[in-house]
Nucleic acid binder design. Structure first.
Lengths: 233, 233
DNA sequence: GCTAAACTGGGACAAGCGTACCGTTTTGAG
DNA sequence: CTCAAAACGGTACGCTTGTCCCAGTTTAGC
């Protein structure tokens, strides 16, 4: 989509409403401060913020069921119940809107991932549940992830996602007393990625995911057992 | 995408030229028989076939670098050096053209994968080379793969792709005398997928891919060593 | 030769897209 | 209250898209 050179994400080039933050790539991209906007009141800000949120939610929803090309200004506006012009008023361009939507999606995904991994059940069950989440959302997410490879700004967000997954995975491994090094985490996360995308795209029936994960975790334990046994000699 | 109902302009299957294969996967409502076109010569057939091939090649090339939305009728026609109308003459719709192009792409990709895995070098080096191929093309491939999750026809092709990768991987493991079960192959292929897509999208520097693959293959050998050692007692 | 079919290719069409314009309404500070 | 700025929203522009039409050309069978 419009692979414009655009070295910088964009600049404060247009009138631009209240939101003073540029593209999401940073760390806490959305609504960082938003406070004390020069001559803006609070009610207005709130309404504007709500509209922005509605637009973002609409974009995410459209992305989920309909895919990438479904996220058009008109569709987003209609879904959010705002006039068409609001989309360009709150977001300089479609690319920017998509970028923000991607950020939001990643945030939600990381939160969901953390919640599942912190939840009940054995680790392998939790991981299996992870890759078997709502397919529509996963498809949209992966679609964006792949698309991110074409845009430096989105690529940064994609890396954030991967890093977040690694962190969540490390926490889960620690909690369940699985011996693990950073390399182990990376290994498992990579496997999880493959499993995740294959499951999402191909949607084959069966327990292949569960089996694969069981095997991977057993490898972890086995490696420890072996080294422990050898060391004990 | 103009999802026109259009039951049939004046016939069930448009004029439609000689190409005798239907939609790549499944059976498809398109060109059911088409065999032995009554009064068609051979020279004409050949020329028509050449054009079809040129169109398909053009579509594949566009798919490779430019991704999915790059495959437009006009772009394909221009790339193939044929007039615009030829695209709708040889393919009923853009979707059909894309499906055929996808099939061809997967075939070629599987062939290329097989060639690399059958080539010289250690297995880990060959696998590393696999995930480090031309990035633009890989991006296009993954884009298509993910998109395939939204279309049953394309999904079937995607599964074919995965199965082909599994087969190629099994062959390579056998050649290099790695002990492996079908589950091992699946495990390794899944890991490879994860590694592949992460490498393609995020393009992080370093030798992480090589390391991860080394580790995975060592796991294979280790499992055998361990079981062998245990059995030897 | 002739005829009907397959093929060619230039052009046109409606639909949908991102985006910009610009007059109107709402808002909050003075 | 006044009033400038911000927010809003209808609408239009320029462009690209997929697809179709149709007159012209080539081909194969007679």
């Amino acid at each position: 989509m419009t692979s414009h050179p655009q070295p910088s994400p964009f600049q404060a080039g247009t009138p631009q409403p209240g939101h003073g933050h540029s593209v999401p790539a940073g760390e806490g991209p959305d609504e960082p401060a938003t406070g004390a906007r020069h001559a803006s009141g609070k009610a207005t800000q709130k309404r504007a913020q709500a509209r922005r949120d509605a637009l973002l939610d609409a974009a995410v929803a459209l992305l989920e069921d309909g895919g990438f090309p479904a996220v058009t200004h008109r569709a987003v506006a209609h879904q959010a119940g705002v006039p068409l012009a609001a989309t360009t008023y709150y977001f300089d361009s479609r690319d920017q809107l998509v970028a923000h939507a991607f950020t939001r999606l990643v945030e939600r995904e990381l939160a969901a991932t953390g919640a599942i991994l912190d939840g009940p059940g054995s680790l392998v069950d939790r991981l299996t549940a992870l890759v078997g989440q709502d397919r529509a959302r996963q498809l949209g997410l992966w679609e964006l992830y792949v698309h991110a490879g074409r845009d430096p700004v989105l690529q940064a967000i994609a890396r954030t996602w991967t890093d977040g997954c690694d962190a969540a995975l490390a926490t889960a491994l620690r909690r369940d007393r699985y011996p693990h090094t950073p390399a182990d985490v990376r290994f498992l996360a990579t496997l999880l990625s493959g499993l995740w995308i294959e499951t999402t795209v191909e949607a084959r029936p069966g327990t292949a995911a569960h089996d694969t994960l069981t095997r991977a975790l057993n490898t972890l334990r086995a490696a420890k057992d072996v080294s422990g046994r050898l060391r004990a000699r």
